[in-house]
Amino acid sequence: MCAARLTEWCRIPTSGARAVEPFELDGMSLLAVPQLAYDLPGRPADMNGGDSDTDLLLLRKTVGGYEPFQTLPVPGGEDAEFFRIGDRAFLATASIRRGRGPYEYATESTIYTWSGSRFEPFQTVAGFAAKQWRHFTVAGQHFLALAQGVALPDTAPVNRPSLIFRWDGEAFRLSQEISSQWAYNWHAFSVGGQDFLAHADHVEPSRLYRWDGGRFVVHQEVAERHGRAFATFHADGHDYLLVACLLSRSRLLRWDGDRFVDHQVLDGLGGRELAVLPGKHGPYVVRVNFILGTREAPDTALSSTLYQWHDGKLAVVGEFPTFGGTDVAVCADGQGPLVAVSNALSADVRFATHTVVYRFTEQAPRHRDRGRSAR
């Protein structure tokens, strides 16, 4: 195997960061970071507390890091999804809640559009504990899907399913509801000449949906519970679907021509997000871990994992520290790949911590390096 490393490139002060979304726009390299909450002075540490009347940070890449570009009012920020339709650029943001406790989960999530100099509100969507937007195209049509919901005793009567919207040329219109209780994520991809949409749920089974020409229909279940995220890659002539789970072991599935079947079980719990990096001799996968333990007493200082494809399996080739890790995204500059990782909770369960951007390098094996890196 080739030696690979993640070397810290820069740190960004954030508070309860829940996602990282790098994108290119009008010659700028931007990074959107939604924030769940700010710490409340004098209050005890509580991953479910804090002030959720927060802003999304929009940052512009410079020579040595990122500088402020714009802030957007995104209370209880969980996600940001950048996409284009024709010559228009959009940034869809997801808000899980607002307030300082008790919290309002029935809140609007805002889709912004680029004016030429800044992002401005375009459309709001009424949601409930919104977690993630995902834009994708099928059969020449633009879709925008919202994963949402939270299954708590006091929210059960008003919980809502996940939603899929379709672009009609002027706005996003509701196209389909997807059964969910505590949804987290989507992943759209094609395999075997078919279009699929994976939907992750913490309480219900995570399911793979297939486009039948008019709507998405259930194709198979891919995790019984605790679903958080997905990734797909092609290696050694096969297509693979990786399913990250928080309280269950994450699994790698292989396409057999009709369904995804079990291929490998990954060690460890706490899986929250995934990203794939191309390599010289096969793909790499970054797995970001969130917490272990309970919501009331979480262990947030975990090691997250770098895998390399080797001999038909994902093999661990490095680890790096995360603190309530929530998201990972890959981008690149003139020096090569960058890997952005959002951290939501410090070791003492406070929201104020750092989002970290790493430089990814792949090279021949070498002597042990004492620098800060994951290998």
Rank of each mutant, 00 (worst) to 15 (best):
R272I: 02
S206E: 01
F83N: 00
T110A: 10
Y209L: 15
E296Y: 00
G336C: 10
E221V: 05
M47W: 06
V261T: 15
V33C: 05
A352R: 14
R225Y: 09
L274W: 02
I111Y: 03
P153F: 11
Y66D: 02
L208G: 11
S346F: 10
V339W: 11
R11G: 08
Y66R: 09
L174G: 04
E81H: 11
G50M: 08
T361V: 12
A139H: 06
Q123S: 00
G116W: 10
S29E: 14
I85R: 09
A364L: 14
T137M: 12
W114R: 10
I96A: 07
R173M: 12
D168W: 11
P41D: 15
V125E: 03
G271V: 11
G282W: 03
F323I: 02
D256S: 07
V218E: 15
Y240D: 04
S52P: 01
G116A: 13
W133G: 07
R359A: 15
P321L: 00
G214Q: 14
E170V: 05
D79I: 04
P157G: 04
L30W: 08
E108A: 14
G86S: 07
A37I: 12
E177G: 09
G76H: 02
F122A: 13
F351R: 12
N289F: 08
K131M: 09
D87N: 15
G16E: 01
F69P: 08
A19N: 13
E319I: 00
G42H: 11
W255F: 13
L58S: 09
L274C: 05
G282K: 01
S248Y: 13
D258E: 14
Y103I: 04
Q132W: 02
T361C: 07
H187S: 01
A37Q: 12
G101K: 08
Y209H: 15
A37M: 13
P278V: 01
R134F: 00
R118Q: 11
S342M: 03
D258P: 00
G127E: 08
V330P: 06
P121G: 03
V125L: 15
G324R: 10
A3H: 05
D55Y: 04
